[in-house]
Design a protein around this nucleic acid. Sequence first.
DNA 1: GTAATTTCTTGACATATGTCAACGTTTTGA
DNA 2: TCAAAACGTTGACATATGTCAAGAAATTAC
Lengths: 199, 199
Amino acid sequence: MSNSNEQNKAIFLSEIEKRVKIPEGEFEAFYNLWDYKKFKRSEFIQKAGEVPKFSIFVLHGILRQYLVNDKGEESIVYFAQERHFIGDLAALRNRVSSNFNFQAIEACEILVISAENWEKAFNLFPWWTDAHVRGFQKWTSMIQEQVFDSQTKTGEERYLDLIKKKPELLQRVPQHYIASYLGLSAETLSRIRKKMFNV
Amino acid sequence: MSNSNEQNKAIFLSEIEKRVKIPEGEFEAFYNLWDYKKFKRSEFIQKAGEVPKFSIFVLHGILRQYLVNDKGEESIVYFAQERHFIGDLAALRNRVSSNFNFQAIEACEILVISAENWEKAFNLFPWWTDAHVRGFQKWTSMIQEQVFDSQTKTGEERYLDLIKKKPELLQRVPQHYIASYLGLSAETLSRIRKKMFNV
DNA sequence: GTAATTTCTTGACATATGTCAACGTTTTGA
DNA sequence: TCAAAACGTTGACATATGTCAAGAAATTAC
């Protein structure tokens, strides 16, 4: 069921070309800076407290990025599905430990890039830098709006938003992960759903 | 009371040099891409719905970045004090309207850079790009942790965190702005403080 | 300096959400 | 295929926080 190297390359290329134009012939060298890896369901790609070994592009599968506090409560900050970039780049580049956990929810195929190769890519390929910068600029506004939502909306409203924005996600990951992402207990989400669908 | 042009330049330079090394002689040209502006207390630098005219560096004073939802409730996502960069770069670069409001809390002196000049700076000065990228990488982790905190911590815990991290802020801005930043009603913060200091 | 405005506090009450515990259902892995 | 693990639901109860309204205190602007 796993994709061939050529298919993976094509997926990766098309995703980057959505954002920037790649000069003739440069993609091959860029692609060679990345390695292919496979993870089983529920395996950890990276654990909190570790210095990240790489940054990630998801070819197939889905993984969760989450934080854990001192009381052991965890909360998912991001679901990375196929064609998403994910990782703790600040920690990767500065060679410091990360607070984030990255775990495969389903079996995953991913491409990874080491800190060393990340710097190479950044220095060699201006189009990559540009894509990267644009990605971050957009992403920060999005997360800031997420902070806002978590402060001003009820759980039910946030759940309805998610149904609109990422309906496929709800079919794909266990409901208690959705609850964790929304900042709700599993019980509360269950009750919200009951109220929404039973009346 | 306002700083001279030379003082402003020095402040700006020292802030960037904290992050990256600037090659001999390049700073002057970079600095010329920025303009100086002044705003009075409670004036708007940019309103939601507008296409941003520039991105901002704060020389003096403090401003708030906030969002408003359909019900008219507002929530502060960021306080920018002196020596902070602030703005909606995704909207600026793409020439689309921004959801964010930027308002001076105190009288402010700021440097601004237009969309056009921003692209110039980005293309001409790799050290600027680098500083910028590092800033964003760190910032995204920080905001993600902020989402986490707003989902897993009580208002009292978030207030205590803020006292530790930015004690000077509490002396400087009205308490109901602090409440808004913490995602609490003004009344609730008042009660938290009463409980903390009266017992 | 004083009026107008903004800010902060407090009470009473409503409500969203968490916690704990029990139990049934579904999925997983060998 | 079947036992074990993971997942989802429900009840009872506790609690954090919001809302509305009133008034006191502080700050601002002329």
